[in-house]
């Protein structure tokens, strides 16, 4: 792939082969000749504690063959810190290492060792920047829009550089592409939470904070309107109300917004809300709306009966797989 293995560079190195054919060995792997050769040399170089250019090249070959080999990543980092100290230009040296890592990353999207290695490089880099990280992150998220490690790394970066400028827009672009992308939604929540936290008090006065939160509520409502049966957008809305409004699901008539999705369920009497009658109940566009109203009303004493009706309808028709949960909620409210 990226590193041509040139055995002549290591002609003075006596390989240290992996011991095989042990008594009662389990899971013996049929190693390829290439693996045996590369690994044999690498094991010797680690044992010798050699921190050199050729050792750096070799770790690249080993990582191609065995990306989960944690000792090699650790060895490579030791080589890098040793070589950069004598390179005369630490920044250029580490940029070259990041270029190499970009390529490994694009070829091994599922490997999580990559991201902690990247973090370690950025921690020693004298002039690290978010801008340098964004292209590879965009490519990775483009390829796998819900890759947990990539999103985590992005959030680690924006927090490290305390630069949230692009993040609402970035989350929005991913939500535009796939409204069900939960990683994009939770990224948005992460951004909102950070921007409105006390740490940002200097730039964020109360007015701006309020406007932003109001805007985000409208944003969530708008996305729910487009796609009412989407757990991610409802969770986003709930997250905001839980955090900023003390779990009040009725502020600014937001319960009315949810109620438009649940027809006139509250007008049904108890005899209508039964399993046998469930086919006569209307089709609804969103069980999450019903759950939202139920949870909100369950906290308001004089709306408890409405909450019970909502849970009951979830149980018998709109989300029956969770009837254990709904029935539990009903018995809690009835107690």
């Amino acid at each position: 792939m990226m590193s041509e293995f040139d055995v002549s560079l290591y002609s003075d190195i006596e390989p240290l082969p992996i011991e095989t054919g042990l008594d009662n060995e389990l899971c013996q792997i049929m190693y390829t000749d290439e693996y045996k050769q590369v690994i044999g040399i690498a094991r010797r170089l680690i044992s010798n504690g050699e921190f050199s250019e050729r050792a750096l090249d070799l770790t690249s070959c080993v990582i191609d063959l065995s990306p989960a080999f944690y000792t090699i990543w650790n060895y490579r980092f030791n080589i890098v810190t040793a070589l950069m100290a004598v390179s005369g230009d630490i920044e250029a040296f580490l940029n070259k290492e990041l270029d190499w890592l970009d390529e490994v990353t694009l070829n091994n999207p599922k490997n999580y060792q990559i991201w902690s290695y990247r973090q370690a490089l950025l921690e020693v880099h004298p002039n690290a920047s978010l801008k340098r990280e964004l292209p590879v992150l965009e490519m990775m998220i483009d390829e796998d829009t819900k890759n947990y490690h990539v999103w985590s790394y992005r959030k680690w970066c924006v927090q490290k550089f305390n630069d949230f400028t692009n993040e609402f827009q970035f989350a929005d672009s991913l939500i535009e592409k796939d409204i069900y992308n939960n990683s994009a939604w939770t990224h948005r929540m992460f951004v909102l939470k950070n921007l409105t936290s006390n740490k940002n008090e200097d730039n964020w006065n109360e007015q701006l904070k309020k406007e932003t939160i109001d805007f985000e509520i409208e944003y969530a409502k708008q996305k729910i309107t487009l796609c009412p049966q989407n757990v991610s957008s409802w969770n986003y809305l709930r997250g905001i109300l839980d955090k900023y409004f003390d779990e009040d699901y009725t502020i600014n008539g937001i319960d009315e917004f949810a109620i438009q999705y649940i027809d006139n369920i509250f007008e049904k009497n108890e005899s209508e809300l039964t399993e046998t009658n469930s086919t006569n109940l209307p089709q609804l566009k969103s069980s999450y709306a019903l759950q939202f109203v139920a949870d909100g009303y369950s906290r308001i004493p004089d709306k408890k009966n409405m909450a019970i009706k909502a849970y009951k309808s979830l149980s018998i028709k709109y989300d029956p797989i969770r009837r254990g949960l709904w029935n539990h909620m009903i018995s809690k409210l009835s107690a």
Partner: peptide
């Protein structure tokens, strides 16, 4: 079967065998 001889593609799992 997984405790017997494994094919070369298992090399990538060698560190955590």
């Amino acid at each position: 079967r997984h405790l017997l001889l494994l094919p070369p593609k298992a090399q990538s799992q060698d560190p955590n065998k």
